[in-house]
C-alpha cells in the first residue's frame, strides 16, 4: 500500500469566487482505498474543494491529480475519459436527482455514455445489481425519485455514483439531511461498500461524530485553509489545533452526565468573512488562546504524529495546549 500513486492529490488548491477566497492553498493526498474526512463549518470552503475535484468549478490555481493525472489542465473532452474515475454524492438527494427520470435510468446513466457504455440489457442487469448492493429492491428502478424517502434517495445517489466503479468517491454531507436512524443506515452502507469495493473516499462533513466510523484520516478546514490533519485516532485523542479542540468540545454527546460535566468552549458567533480573512492566523478572532504574534505571523504547519497542526502554540515536539482544559476562555461575547 505504501508507494502507490495517490488516488487524489491536491497541491495548493485555490478557488476564488471573485473577491471571495473560498479555498486558499489546500494540499493533501488520499491513498487508494483510504477514507479522508474533510471537516469544517459552513463557509469553510470544504464543499468547494469537492467541487474542484469533480471540476464542477474551475480552480483559480493549484493542481488536482487523480490517480496521478493532473486534471486541472485537461480539456473537457479528455477529462471525460477520466470522469468515471471520480463520482460524487451530494447532501440533498432530492435536488441532485433528475425528478423526471426513473430511478433505473438515473442509476444506469453513467453506463449509457462514455467509456463504460453498455447495451440496454446488460445495463439493466447492472442497475438491478447495484440497487441490491445499496439495499434497494430491483422494483425501485421503475419508480421516480420523489416517490422515495430521503434515505432511499440517498441510496439511489450512492448506487449511481458507484455503478461506474470509481476509484474515488466524493461524498459531500451525504447524511446531513437525514434523520439519525436513517443516517446510521447510510453511514453503515457507505462503510460496508468502501470496505468491500475499496474505493478511496473524500468524505466532506460538518459533523465530526459522523466521521468516526468511516475515516482513516481527518483534515480540518477553517476559512479556506487546512488547520490540522492527522489520523482519526490522533485527532480524536490528541487534537492540537485550538479550532479542532473547539469543534470536538462543541459537538454535544448523547449522554447527559458527560455532556453536562464537559468544559464549555464558546467561540463567539462571528465567523470572519472570506472576503477579508484576518491577518496572521485566520482563527485568531475566535481563538481563546490568541496572542500578539497570531495577528502578524501566519502559523506554519508543525508536525504532530503522522500529520500536522498550524498553530503558534504547538511546540516542535508536537505537544501543545488544549482549550478544553483551560476553562473560562471566551472570545467575542
Amino acid at each position: 500500500m505504501t508507494d502507490q500513486t495517490p488516488a487524489l492529490e491536491l497541491e495548493d488548491l485555490t478557488m476564488h469566487y471573485g473577491p471571495v477566497r473560498a479555498v486558499d492553498g489546500v494540499s493533501f493526498a488520499i491513498r487508494p482505498g483510504q477514507v479522508t474526512a474533510l471537516v469544517g463549518e459552513s463557509g469553510s470552503g470544504k464543499s468547494t474543494v469537492g467541487r474542484c475535484v469533480v471540476r464542477l468549478v474551475e480552480p483559480t490555481a493549484g493542481t488536482v491529480r487523480i490517480a496521478g493525472t493532473d486534471i486541472t489542465h485537461l480539456s473537457r473532452r479528455v477529462l471525460r475519459k477520466h470522469r468515471d474515475d471520480v463520482s460524487i454524492v451530494f447532501q440533498d438527494p432530492a435536488g441532485s436527482l433528475d425528478p423526471r427520470m426513473l430511478v433505473g435510468d438515473v442509476v444506469g446513466e453513467p453506463l449509457r455514455i462514455g467509456a463504460r457504455r453498455l447495451p440496454r440489457k446488460e445495463r439493466d442487469r447492472r442497475v438491478a445489481e447495484e440497487l441490491g448492493r445499496v439495499g434497494l429492491r430491483p422494483a425501485v428502478a421503475r419508480r421516480y425519485p420523489h416517490e422515495l424517502s430521503g434515505g432511499q434517495r440517498q441510496r439511489v445517489s450512492i448506487a449511481r455514483a458507484l455503478i461506474s466503479s470509481p476509484t474515488l468517491l466524493i461524498a459531500d454531507e451525504p447524511t446531513s439531511a437525514l434523520d439519525v436512524s436513517v443516517q446510521a443506515a447510510v453511514l453503515n452502507l457507505l462503510a460496508d461498500l468502501q470496505r468491500d469495493i475499496g474505493f478511496a473516499c473524500l468524505f466532506i462533513t460538518h459533523d465530526l461524530s459522523a466521521v468516526e466510523y468511516l475515516a482513516d484520516e481527518i483534515a480540518v478546514m477553517y476559512l479556506g485553509q487546512l488547520v490540522e490533519m492527522g489520523s482519526r485516532e490522533r485527532i480524536f485523542a490528541r487534537p492540537r489545533h485550538p479550532y479542532t479542540q473547539a469543534l470536538l468540545a462543541a459537538a454535544p454527546v448523547a449522554d447527559p452526565v458527560e455532556q453536562r460535566s464537559r468544559t464549555r468552549v464558546l467561540l463567539g458567533d462571528d465567523l470572519p468573512s472570506a472576503l477579508d480573512p484576518p491577518s496572521g492566523c485566520r482563527f485568531r478572532t475566535r481563538c481563546p488562546l490568541a496572542f500578539d504574534r497570531c495577528a502578524t505571523e501566519v502559523p506554519p504547519p508543525i508536525p504532530v504524529g503522522d500529520g500536522y497542526a498550524a498553530c503558534h502554540l504547538v511546540r516542535p515536539d508536537g505537544t501543545g495546549p488544549d482549550v478544553r482544559v483551560s476553562s473560562g476562555h471566551e472570545v467575542g461575547a
Partner: peptide, 8 residues
C-alpha cells in the same frame, strides 16, 4: 447552525 454556534 454550526456546532460551535449552537453551543452558544
Amino acid at each position: 447552525l454550526d456546532v460551535t454556534v449552537q453551543a452558544g
